[in-house]
Design a protein around this nucleic acid. Structure first.
Length: 236
DNA sequence: TCATTAAGTATGC
DNA sequence: GCATACTTAATGA
């Protein structure tokens, strides 16, 4: 459907963890088999349970990984930043995607057919190990969030969620550090297991205290250290 | 401490 | 001007 755009430059992949150990000619081979595509904000790239036909690399933008509970609520499991692979069902030896993935902002991705996963892993030094590492990291992150959900109060969870996004996608601005992709109260409630009303109240209170500044779909953390206190221990 | 209901204002295509 | 984002207060588990 999408034509192969001009010709992808090798510098796109050089330096990214999954490809860091590869030489130019190898990167060229990989790029020549990739399809690139752009997604607008809000567009679903693939759905939980879909046949996993391709795996993806995020070149630019941000994507949200969403899981649906048996009762039908959406839970935002994590956000993915540029340079990371996603939809890597083959690494988990799965035939279907374990989660839905949606473009959180205008997004540019490369993708390859899953059958190439095994080929890359076998042919290219470091590809497999690097990817198992990131899979492990993400599982750990999700685990941490699950236990956080069970143990921490809402205010602490929301503070921690903001910090995570800032750490991962923070962009320095005049006022502080801003989250680099559009994010709503609803979204934040979906990552913290609360309601948008509670998130709204918390953000309003924090704004009054000078910890954050927000406009519609846009949040700047003006006092990260104070958020840290809020997310941390019981008393702060 | 927090969800829910409900009723409002603000914002942007 | 309509849909969506966001705010706030009240109530009750």
């Amino acid at each position: 459907m999408e034509a192969q755009v001009p010709r992808l430059d090798e510098s796109l992949l050089a330096g990214l963890p999954p490809f860091s150990r590869l030489g130019r000619p190898q990167i060229r081979e990989i790029l020549d088999q990739a399809v690139s595509r752009r997604y607008d904000e809000g567009i679903t790239i693939f759905r939980e349970g879909d046949e996993a036909e391709r795996f993806y690399l995020l070149l630019d933008g941000y994507v949200r990984v969403i899981r649906t509970t048996p009762t039908g609520e959406q839970i935002i499991a994590l956000h993915i930043s540029p340079g990371q692979l996603f939809g890597i069902a083959p690494a988990l030896r799965r035939a279907t995607y374990p989660a839905t993935t949606v473009a959180a902002a205008e997004t540019l991705v490369l993708s390859w057919p899953v059958r190439l996963w095994a080929v890359f892993a076998e042919t290219y030094d470091g590809f497999a190990t690097e990817n198992y590492r990131t899979v492990g990291e993400r599982l750990g992150e999700i685990q941490a969030k699950m236990s956080e959900l069970a143990t921490q109060a809402v205010e602490q969870r929301v503070a921690a969620a903001l910090l995570r996004m800032v750490n991962q996608s923070g962009r320095k601005s005049a006022e502080g550090i801003e989250i680099a992709f559009p994010i709503t109260r609803q979204n934040i409630s979906e990552m913290t297991g609360t309601t948008l009303h509670t998130v709204s109240r918390l953000l309003s209170a924090w704004e009054k205290d000078g910890v954050v500044k927000s406009t519609r779909k846009h949040i700047v953390v003006t006092a990260p250290h104070r958020l840290m206190l809020l997310s941390g221990g019981p008393e702060a």
